[in-house]
Nucleic acid binder design. Structure first.
Lengths: 180, 180
DNA sequence: TAGCATAGTTTATTATATTGAACAATGGAA
DNA sequence: TTCCATTGTTCAATATAATAAACTATGCTA
């Protein structure tokens, strides 16, 4: 995890010295030095104070991924395909284990249906209908969306996608974090 | 922040008892009890071990936002419009302050160009080309993407979008966290 | 060069987290 | 009911983090 390096980087980005941050967060400067060298592991409470001094949330702090990522561009035939019954998902990128977005082009044949999907991650998801019609159920809300319409909700609500029409439906969707 | 309640909730969701989690994470069960009551603030190192026992990352743990969100469905004419010169962005949802995704339908007229965009958040962004052609520059890589092609990179790299052709270009894009 | 300000580091002391074991409290099964 | 298993809680002992002050190093100005 390397909390030390991350803290140091965040501090440097703000242009703070250890002492400046120590003052802001009401912490001793020695403590900051030890943390940055990973000689001690700060309590969550202390780290929170430090990050407040840097105007950063714990969530942001721990989500800052810095490993350089591989492929950046994907040709249409390089998208990773997933199928669930007759429904096809074309995913941007392969292994999304250490990534935050799952970007999909979804293809729903006429009368296809995901059924109720269980709550997976505690994330968010949204999308825009490219063509055709799709009936989206989220919690106790049901909506029929057409080309150009969009949705955006929290993934922990039970949800369902159903193509009620006689034409194909295509959706551009995204969720964070990735589901599969 | 209430680390205690969050930990308890995450543990319950997995169906673990305090002792079961203690065993998984090689921590004493008493410690878990005290943490869940917010009587002590665990070190980051310990919390990490606990979350590993629950198959959860620190980032996920601190990002679990539970405030219920408002609107879930958006008709095509309800998308929020942003314009930068001749480039139009249609955004899903209005105020994204407390949200994690910014979902856009982007419209690039012939020969439009964003210029070099500065690094904004330390996030990620990606998208798929719906129609037309777009030249995408990320760091020192340049690619011409056509309908169906996609991109996915880290937002802290300088990047630029340019429509070199004589036809309109439309893109579905997403970034986390939101930029504007 | 000397003098001073600021940077990060180290260390003995103090405060806090963590342990391990004992302590309820609850819920079956016999 | 009694017995046993399992739950979460508490507390003295121990390990670790956090402090405050001393220390080193660097750079700037006179």
């Amino acid at each position: 995890m390397d909390v030390g390096s991350r803290l140091k980087e965040a501090r440097k980005k703000r242009g703070f010295s250890q002492r400046k941050l120590a003052q802001e967060a009401d912490v001793s400067n020695g403590t900051i030095s030890l943390i940055e060298q990973n000689k001690i592991s700060p309590s969550v409470a202390l780290l929170k104070r430090l990050l407040e001094g840097l105007s950063m949330s714990l969530g942001e702090f721990f989500n800052e991924d810095k490993y350089p990522k591989e492929k950046q561009f994907f040709h249409a035939d390089e998208l990773t395909e997933h199928t669930f019954g007759s429904i096809r998902f074309l995913q941007v990128g392969g292994d999304l284990h250490d990534r935050r977005l799952q970007i999909l082009r979804e293809h729903y044949p006429p009368h296809s249906d995901t059924g109720e999907l269980m709550l997976v991650h505690n994330g968010e998801e949204g999308g825009i209908v490219l063509r055709g019609e799709i009936e989206v159920t989220v919690g106790d809300e049901i909506q029929l969306l057409r080309a150009g319409d969009a949705y955006y909700f929290e993934s922990n609500k039970p949800h369902r996608f159903r193509n009620p029409g006689d034409d194909d439906c295509e959706i551009f969707s995204v969720c964070t974090p990735p589901n599969f």
